[in-house]
């Protein structure tokens, strides 16, 4: 390390020079008198050709070329979709020129007329698919319901649907998934003042022992509201005591509604009416 001859502290200016330069400075420093502060000028030093720039052998160049080529190939692979898209933009339009099925004007006009008729028929056919009777749409992502008739919306309201909770019971070695099924359903039954027959998970969730199938402990009155509409597989559209939870995904799979919405749904939907859940 270069040191200042006055106080012996490291000379930072000198230490910033390249190794070759500092060696060149070493000799004059020993000749100088101790009173003169050495002024070191960092002169441009022509460095000897480094090893990395020296001529390489053919195998070494091949290896280097292969590694760099592989890197470039990976980049090409990564950007291939973009490059293909550019190629489509760059390609001449003539390759994609409009081609007519025929150049005969009369034939073309006839075909156009036929097509128009066919499209109109298909539109009519498609419009007939929508149910004429009122139907219900349940939106599980925003927890909303829509009572519809044809394309017209009769009522929009709030509901609660499946919580997506997976309840696991280590003791029972069973698990239940609380989701509202999606798709098209039909009203299979309508009940007034429904009684809830509690399934096994209701006891597991409360930390209670599971009673026998027809035990009186399983029956609860007044918790499902004024009405219940059956969708099949045990899924119901019913009322709730927990009205502040409406609009949130909190149920065990059923669709819970507020009193007024439930009354409207019960009134508008008949047996066989369609319920679309998504």
């Amino acid at each position: 390390m270069n040191t200042n001859p006055n106080d012996g502290t490291p000379n930072h200016r000198a230490s910033t020079l390249s190794e070759g330069a500092s060696q060149a400075e070493e000799k004059p420093e020993t000749v100088r008198s101790p009173q003169v502060t050495p002024i070191i000028i960092a002169s441009p030093v022509i460095a000897p050709p480094s090893a990395s720039l020296a001529p390489a052998s053919a195998p070494k160049a091949l290896l280097l070329g292969i590694s760099l080529g592989l890197l470039a190939a990976l980049l090409t692979l990564w950007f291939a979709p973009v490059l293909r898209e550019w190629m489509f933009v760059v390609l001449p339009e003539s390759k994609f020129a409009l081609q007519l099925r025929t150049t005969d004007l009369k034939k073309l006009q006839k075909e156009a007329l036929l097509l128009k008729k066919r499209v109109a028929t298909l539109q009519k056919k498609h419009a007939q698919i929508t149910p004429r009777l009122p139907y219900l749409i349940v939106d599980t992502s925003e927890n909303r319901i829509h009572i519809m008739k044809g394309d017209e919306q009769l009522h929009e309201g709030v509901c609660s649907t499946g919580s997506y909770v997976l309840l696991r019971s280590a003791a029972q070695q069973r698990q239940w998934m609380f989701t509202t099924p999606r798709g098209m359903f039909q009203i299979r039954g309508k009940r007034e003042a429904p009684v809830w027959k509690k399934p096994d998970w209701a006891f597991v969730e409360e930390g209670l022992p599971i009673p026998p199938v027809n035990s009186s402990l399983r029956f609860e009155y007044g918790v499902l509201g004024e009405y219940a509409l059956e969708l099949g597989d045990g899924y119901l559209i019913h009322g709730t005591l927990y009205k502040r939870m409406l609009g949130m995904p909190v149920t065990h799979g059923c669709v819970r509604l507020g009193d007024e919405d439930l009354r409207l749904v019960y009134k508008n939907l008949q047996l066989g009416s369609k319920v679309f859940i998504y």
Partner: peptide, 29 residues
């Protein structure tokens, strides 16, 4: 570095460097 090499080494390097990306460009683009 490239310019300092002999013609043969330059050719070997270019061949190796271009081969893979060119192949990938042809077959994927």
């Amino acid at each position: 570095w490239f310019l300092r090499q002999t013609r043969g080494v330059q050719a070997a390097f270019l061949f190796a460097f271009i081969l893979f990306p060119l192949f990938i460009f042809i077959v994927t683009v």
